[in-house]
Design a protein around this nucleic acid. Structure first.
Length: 893
DNA sequence: TGCGTGCATGTGTGA
DNA sequence: CACACATGCACGCAA
């Protein structure tokens, strides 16, 4: 082994024991080298010819800009390394917040677990063995077998170990006996090289620094697989703060660590495996599987059981790639019997076979029903397939998804399967996070956490046999930190469907608990708050103040607003800790998590021990009023247009709400606004009281969003109208031709209507009276009347096709035009009021038609307020709708 | 009639 | 767009 120099100039160690390697697969394809003396690791990227060819040996620290000399690169032409600017010097790398992985962890690398005996389960992660200057030979020995794994832990220890001694690693090393089993070492190599990718978001100490994109989801994990093939590269090591975007969950997941458990390398076509099949087996599961044997467990893949899989048919569909990679090759559809041992040691024989399917194959395991039942598995649970080496025996494990019971009533006794529920507790929400493997080390760190939630959880997990999982800890960490969404939205824990993020939407859609996650617009609004750190820009339009937020609203805690008959307004919120209701100022915006101790307005009730201010009956009354109010609100928003402001726009202002109901019996009213997240009853801002059209004192040349939206809509509508008109004219011409040839009578009648439509289209105001009276005088046939009645439900189908030209539509056009005209008045007025005649002129000129701006009502004026409250909100989209006729019989007369 | 088997098909996902 | 896969369904066999 040739001598090399640590690239860290602060170290400068020259040693022959440094095992420079390419292929340290870090997340996102970065590669790293490190010094075995100081532990400094430097991110390197593979496949950059630039560095390779133009290596100057210098690079800048990514944090402080200090120039570091890489003494080794130039002398290592065989190593394709490139620093992409993400290199940190030792000092910088040791700065708090840059720790990659907690030194508390006792990573086993997940991929392979070697068991000398069940009671002395030793992670064989060679990661832990690297480093330290003592056992160089062992290091080298291991190093020869460990290319591609372990660096991450070196990285972690580098940062955690202040004196660079890697003492803990040495401890681990002392327990390792690699030479004991060549097979084991080989497996370690194979598995680890392929299995482990690791990243952490911070230290258990709560460092908030994190790395961009540190949370790995399925897609990311997939990316990782690509990376390991060296096709892409990204940064892993700490980046300059400006790059270390502490955003979202990543920023908060202080102890997060993501492990991408990749299947072993030896499978055929292994690179094709989708991440969702990558095994995620905890230490305990591995131990469970391995039992007392001395075998090495190599997780192969896993699969979430579908309804079909878990059904009575007894066929478990195997992922093709997995089947081909890890099961014996079969050439005949009949396949062959496969012996698979379950975790209890019972051996099952399944028929491994395939069906021809679209020039492909569909692999199934047949006869799995007894096994499935034995394990009490159901759809959504996961079966894992592993291999015992050196025997090569297939082992089948399982993991209950269990959204279960356990979490519904929080009775531990109700937890089936010894606490797996805790996993499901979080796995539902965080299903998309590929968080893998169990690390008791982190769990221990949780025990010392100041966060009671974490402590409680860690206790719970620790006491839970079989599935003590870092996964859970991490997820709970996410939960407690993220709190916001979860607290507010996913209140009943059982609602946290494990199927979130599931591949199959078939499972998703029909699951009641998943459906329960759906929120109404109003419910969502109740939880929306303006971003707390963002100051709105204030603009004034029509003497009303706009608050413009560039950032989207954030989720906050729901609260209830009450308007007393005395006029006093109150806000009530429930403590997240004790669930007691507390009165708050009406203008207070609740954070996602709020407890009594945050109640700074009422010191007598700033503790959870303080009695509830509301008696049960009062609370009932409050909630009932709230419910009633919501019903009324929905009903109000669905009221026909004539009951609204002339504009026909959503003007459900808070003042109106209060005014409508202030006189009602009862002590209080509950009111919220549908208008804007932060706006509360009584708010008189333009958002709450003004039509979204911005009707007011805008100049013709105004280019504000409101005006531009109006103009854009108007233009689009005019174009659409023009198109429809030309189509109608063509259709009329065609029908006239047909009539000349002698068409059916009814068709003639329809045509007559069409003619009116056509003419009405040219002059709606005149046509309205004419068409209605003619309709009446013509005494349409019952059939026709029925049609009109049937179709005249008075609603606007926003999903309808504006260009639809069926006979029914033709029948309805008369009153449609009337509606258009009526409904368009506000915009007309608006245009006049705003001096937007230029717009009209422009539209008229561009369309070269006789249409009037009235039709803007299609989208703007809402001729019929049958649209839902949600639809009433300004979307800025071009509502692609043709108003259905409001053809009640009276309308048709 | 019920069940098992094999194929077909629709849907979702990744390239 | 191709492929994987979940599931539907027809067919045949056995009770």
């Amino acid at each position: 082994m040739e001598s090399k120099t640590c690239m860290n100039e602060l170290c400068g160690a020259s040693t022959s024991s440094i095992e420079w390697r390419r292929g340290w697969a870090l997340r996102s394809g970065d590669f790293a080298v490190l010094c075995d003396k100081c532990g400094s690791a430097f991110e390197q990227s593979l496949f950059c010819e630039v560095f390779h060819s133009k290596d100057t040996g210098w690079r800048e620290c990514g944090l402080c800009g200090k120039r570091l000399h890489c003494g080794c690169i130039a002398s290592r032409p065989l190593i394709e390394l490139l620093d992409r600017g993400g290199v940190n010097c030792k000092n910088c790398a040791k700065k708090p917040g840059l720790d990659l992985i907690s030194s508390d962890e006792k990573p086993n690398g997940f991929g392979t677990l070697r068991t000398d005996n069940a009671s002395n389960l030793q992670p064989t992660s060679a990661d832990n063995q690297l480093g330290g200057s003592g056992d160089k030979m062992k290091l080298m020995q291991l190093g020869n077998n460990s290319e591609g794994f372990g660096l991450r832990h070196l990285l972690q220890f580098r940062n955690d170990d202040p004196d660079g001694s890697f003492g803990k690693m040495k401890q681990e090393e002392a327990r390792l006996d690699i030479s004991k089993s060549n097979v084991g070492a080989k497996d370690i190599y194979e598995s680890m090289a392929q299995t482990n990718l690791s990243i952490t978001l911070g230290s258990p100490g709560g460092n908030s620094n994190s790395f961009p994109g540190a949370v790995v989801d399925e897609k990311d994990s997939k990316t990782s697989s690509i990376i390991q093939q060296g096709t892409r590269s990204r940064h892993l090591l700490p980046k300059p703060p400006k790059l270390a975007l502490a955003t979202g969950p990543e920023a908060n997941a202080g102890i997060s660590q993501i492990r991408i458990a990749r299947p072993p390398a030896e499978g055929r076509g292994r690179n094709q495996l989708l991440p969702r099949y990558w095994p995620r087996i905890t230490d305990q599961e591995l131990q469970q599987i391995s039992g007392d044997s001395n075998s090495t467990i190599v997780p192969l893949f896993e699969k979430v059981l579908s309804a079909s899989d878990a059904g009575r048919i007894g066929r478990l569909v195997l992922p093709k790639a997995c089947a081909e990679a890890y099961f014996p090759p079969i050439s005949q559809p009949e396949g062959l019997p496969l012996r698979i041992q379950d975790v209890k040691g019972k051996e099952w024989v399944f028929q491994f076979r395939f069906w021809p399917n679209n020039n492909s194959r569909m692999y199934v395991l047949e006869g799995v029903t007894p096994c499935i039942q034995s394990m009490q598995l159901q759809a959504g649970d996961t079966v894992t397939f592993s291999r015992m080496d050196p025997e090569g025996k297939l082992v089948m494990g399982f993991r209950k998804a269990s959204n279960s019971v356990a979490m519904q009533d929080t009775q531990p006794s109700a937890i089936p399967n010894g606490g797996h529920s805790s996993e499901s507790f979080f796995s539902g929400v965080f299903e998309n996070l590929s968080i893998i493997s169990g690390y008791s080390g982190v769990l221990q760190s949780l025990k010392g956490s100041a966060d009671p939630h974490l402590n409680a959880l860690s206790k719970h997990l620790s006491s839970t046999p079989g599935d003590v999982s870092w996964l859970k800890s991490e997820k709970h960490e996410d939960k407690t930190r993220e709190g916001l969404l979860l607290q507010s939205i996913l209140v009943p824990e059982r609602k946290r469907s494990r199927n979130i993020g599931s591949k199959s939407k078939r499972l998703l859609i029909d699951r009641l608990d998943a459906l329960e996650l759906k929120l109404t617009w109003e419910e969502a609004q109740d939880m929306l708050h303006p971003p707390p750190t963002v100051m709105p820009s204030i603009i004034t339009i029509e003497d009303h103040i706009f608050e413009e937020y560039e950032d989207p609203p954030v989720f906050g805690k729901r609260s209830i607003f009450v308007v007393r008959t005395t006029g006093g307004q109150e806000q009530w919120a429930q403590c997240d800790g004790c669930s007691k209701w507390r009165r708050l100022p009406v203008d207070f915006l609740l954070p996602p998590k709020w407890t009594c101790k945050d109640n700074a307005w009422d010191l007598s009730r700033c503790s959870c021990s303080a009695p509830d201010e509301l008696s049960p009956s009062e609370l009932d009354n409050l909630l009932r009023l709230h419910k009633d109010f919501k019903k009324r609100r929905i009903a109000t928003s669905h009221r026909p247009s004539q009951e609204h402001e002339p504009s026909g726009l959503d003007t459900l202002s808070n003042a109106a709400i209060i005014g409508d109901h202030a006189g009602e019996p009862g002590t209080a009213l509950v009111a919220t606004t549908t208008k804007h997240p932060r706006h509360r009853p009584g708010c008189s801002c333009i958002v709450c009281i003004q039509p979204p059209s911005g009707k007011g004192k805008h100049k013709p040349t105004c280019t504000c969003n409101v005006c531009m939206t109006v103009k854009r809509r108007f233009k689009t509508l005019m174009m659409r109208k023009k198109k429809r008109q030309s189509e109608r004219e063509a259709a009329i011409a065609q029908r006239n031709q047909q009539r000349t040839w002698g068409g059916p009578k009814e068709e003639v009648e329809v045509d007559s209507n069409s003619k009116h439509v056509s003419s009405s289209h040219l002059d709606p105001s005149e046509n309205e009276a004419r068409s209605t009276s003619e309709l009446e005088s013509k005494s349409q046939s019952n059939n026709l009347t029925n049609k009109l009645t049937e179709t005249g439900k008075g609603g606007i189908d926003l999903n309808c096709q504006p260009d639809r030209e069926d006979a029914q539509a033709s029948l309805n056009r008369v009153s449609m035009m009337r509606l258009l005209q009526v409904a368009s008045l506000p915009l007309e007025t608006y245009l006049k009021q705003n001096g937007l005649t230029s717009l009209v002129t422009e539209q008229q000129a561009s369309s070269a038609s006789h249409v009037l701006p009235q039709a803007t009502a299609d989208s703007e004026g809402r001729p019929n307020e049958h649209t839902s409250a949600t639809q009433e909100h300004e979307s800025g989209e071009e509502e692609n709708c043709e108003p259905e006729p409001d053809e009640t019989p009276s309308d048709a007369q």
